[in-house]
Amino acid sequence: MPLAEIPLRAWRKRGQNFVFRGRTLRYWVAGQGTPLLLIHGFPTASWDWHYLWQPLAQRNLVIACDMLGFGDSAKPLNHDYCLLEQADLQQALLEHLGVEQPVHVLAHDYGDSVAQELLARHYEGRFQMASCVFLNGGLFPETHCPTLVQKLLLSPLGWMIGRAFGRNALASSFSQIFGPQTRPSESALDDFWSLISCNDGPRILHKLIAYIPQRRRLRDRWVAAMQRGALPLRLIDGGVDPISGAHMVERFEQLVPHADTVLLADIGHYPQIEAPVQVLRHYQAFRDRISQASPQSVYS
């Protein structure tokens, strides 16, 4: 049975504001109970979670924000965007909401890197994490395969590429990274573009893309945290994603002790949008078994 969609217009009306280091950011909260932090990817926003939002809120206090430079949040031009600052932002939001207990984390893409930093901080006693589930993302730089647009944004001409990036370029890019049977509709593409283009977003895409070299610099710190093994981790991954698909699962299983992985056949880079029912099922099973089940690989 498909999950109900939250239209972007309705989603935006539910958002609230908080100020982080002088910048206004949008966030969303629903449900009650155990806190669950959802962290979105590049170049989209927290609306990525809209299929899962209401089902997850039935069992958790679900929290998400559009990170700095994304979605409906502030997108300052004269700013050096940094994954470490985005982790600071997540902690500031939890403090703003008065969340003091350990937090479960569900992350995607760029958000995976933010979650990896929070995991490292957990082991340093600077953050309380209860568990972490990753969706498709560049967990290991050596197996991350950036798209052509990402490579161009990283080049000296990146500022020009970003300003020229439009809705048609987004559609072309997404057609390559979504599964062949699960590509977004024209209406969904309009909504994704609305979030990217809000607050003149294309002018900072070349600055946001700095997360790729940042990942390389922080790789050993983050992988070491994932290898500690004291905190429940799972990877749910769309296998046909050319950026971080089955090859990322293979690397995860090589490097993470007792790796707990789920490989979604024929699904691309955005499993929470392409296969939300499967993601929800595998996420809830992870949470249900978190205290007693041995990690295992699952193929579906």
Rank of each mutant, 00 (worst) to 15 (best):
T147L: 02
I39A: 03
L68H: 10
S131A: 07
K75E: 02
L119I: 05
V105F: 04
A293D: 05
R26H: 10
A87M: 05
Q254E: 13
K151M: 11
W49Q: 00
R221M: 08
S194F: 14
Y270D: 02
L189P: 03
G179R: 10
E142A: 14
P295D: 12
A169S: 12
R215D: 10
G33Q: 11
C132A: 14
V298H: 08
L170E: 08
L233V: 01
G137S: 11
P276N: 06
R59H: 08
Q227Y: 03
D200A: 11
S73H: 06
R234H: 07
L77I: 04
L118I: 08
K151A: 00
Q278N: 07
K151C: 04
H247W: 13
V149Q: 09
A10E: 15
L52M: 04
Q296A: 15
S291I: 12
F70Y: 15
A87L: 04
S172I: 06
H40D: 03
P202D: 03
D191L: 05
Q278H: 12
Q101P: 04
S113I: 14
Y211M: 10
V240F: 04
L118N: 11
E274S: 11
D200K: 10
E253D: 09
N168M: 13
E274F: 08
V149P: 01
L94Q: 06
I196Q: 02
W28P: 06
L195F: 09
W47N: 07
M226V: 00
W49K: 03
L84F: 15
C65K: 07
L280K: 13
R289D: 11
F42G: 00
F192V: 06
V29T: 01
G138T: 09
N60Y: 15
L84S: 14
I204H: 01
G31V: 07
F174L: 04
D66K: 15
E5R: 15
A130Y: 02
L170Q: 06
T24Y: 00
L94M: 04
C198F: 15
S300I: 15
A74D: 09
L84G: 00
L89Q: 14
R26W: 02
W159F: 11
L218D: 14
M1V: 14
R228F: 10
C65L: 15
N78H: 14
F20M: 13
R221L: 06
A293Q: 12
S185C: 01
Q128E: 09
A188S: 12
R251D: 01
M248T: 14
D237R: 10
Y211H: 10
Q278V: 03
I236R: 09
Q176K: 03
Y110V: 08
L255I: 12
I209L: 07
E117R: 09
V103M: 02
L231Q: 03
P55V: 12
L148V: 08
L218K: 06
A57Q: 08
F42T: 03
C145I: 13
F140S: 13
L89H: 07
Q272Y: 05
L37F: 12
Q32D: 06
F140G: 09
M67D: 01
H108M: 00
E186Q: 15
P257N: 01
L208A: 04
H79I: 05
L97K: 00
L148R: 01
S46W: 07
G179W: 09
D109A: 13
P276L: 08
D190I: 04
P156H: 04
A4I: 14
D190E: 13
V99T: 03
R234F: 05
S172H: 00
